[in-house]
Simulated scan of single mutants.
Amino acid sequence: MIKVGSLQYDLATIRTATNNFSDENKLGQGGFGVVYKGKLPKGQEVAVKRLSSASGQGDLEFKNEVLLVAKLEHRNLVRLLGFCLEGDERLLIYEFVPNRSLDHFIFDPIKHAQLDWEIRYKIIEGVARGLLYLHEDSRLRIIHRDLKASNVLLDEDMNPKIADFGMARLVVRDETHGNTSTIVGTYGYMAPEYAMHGQFSMKSDTFSFGVLLLEIISGQKNSCFRIEESIEDLLSYAWKNWKEGTTLNLLDPTLRNGPTAEMKRCIHIGLLCVQENVAHRPTMASVVLMLSNNSFSLPVPSQPAFFVHNTNASDMPSSFGSWISNTRSSEEQSAPLSYNNVSITELYPR
């Protein structure tokens, strides 16, 4: 059984490890605070999250959440090593993941070529297994609510680790969903029932995974992108090409010599995950099975959420334009890209 004392670091140790939170050691900054690289006395490299003082959380609640997050142990999740709570300082100490986040590779016009199909498939499988652990295999049942490319970190072997549990929700073991009046997360990755009605579930995480999978395969962001004189979004473009039998149009050009059958199957799985009807989306257990067993038969997907037909920008309906304007979160619009952008989980038992 994990005890608070075994996870607690003193402030002096962390100040030394981060060179007193120097700018040279700063890895990134998000809504919850600043992340610094540090080195502990025995040489272990860590990422230190210095939480902002605006969280309004009490000491007991902070310690309880640390205990909950520390119980999550899976090779595809960033591991919490400990915390520091002294005076006004609330610090979280995580394992250091050296290869930055997935978005620094997949959307970079040069670095994306480093991700061959073998690496991309490993990332897809690893993220799926990490989500399955959160949903079904851990002692808790956690819905992440903010899965996206910037929240997937890559270790030295390019293995993926899901990070940033700042939006996560804890539900009891026999529950699979919940409701909230506060919508948090990133537009474009949000399932429609969550974005519009505050209904979150394991299937809303499945939707986010489907969007991420299509991004990994295409090298394109989910938000609207221009193809010649037309406006498209990634889900609509994927659906249109799947229906027309031109699925390979979706591929990142660097993947054109890869195993086409496996890549088509992954696109098929991605489309199953982003279906508008929640009941039609697979569980992450089914997704992992689909990815690991090519003989597993895939159902035919239905139209994805937010699907719009290809149209000229001048003819685009204002309602769609309104949705497109929200596909980038305020974090993506104004905050710098963060490195090891991790934060304490907001776990709310129901």
Rank of each mutant, 00 (worst) to 15 (best):
G178S: 08
Q199Y: 10
S218I: 10
E86N: 07
K264M: 07
I123L: 02
L250V: 12
Q44D: 15
K264E: 14
I119C: 00
S338Y: 07
F107P: 04
I14Y: 01
N326G: 15
A168G: 05
Y237Q: 12
I93M: 09
S150W: 01
E156R: 12
L289I: 03
L80T: 11
E118F: 06
V34L: 03
E65T: 15
N222C: 14
L213V: 11
L81Q: 12
I216R: 11
L347Y: 07
T180N: 01
N19R: 12
A128M: 03
F200K: 01
D10C: 06
M284R: 03
M290A: 13
S6E: 15
I143S: 04
G5M: 04
G87Q: 01
I93W: 02
N340I: 13
S53F: 08
D88Q: 13
L72D: 04
N241W: 06
K63T: 00
D146T: 00
T246Y: 09
N25I: 02
E24G: 08
Y339Q: 09
L235V: 08
L298R: 05
A163S: 15
D116G: 08
Y237S: 13
R265W: 00
G198P: 05
A238M: 10
L115T: 08
S302C: 06
F306A: 01
T247W: 05
G270Y: 07
R129T: 10
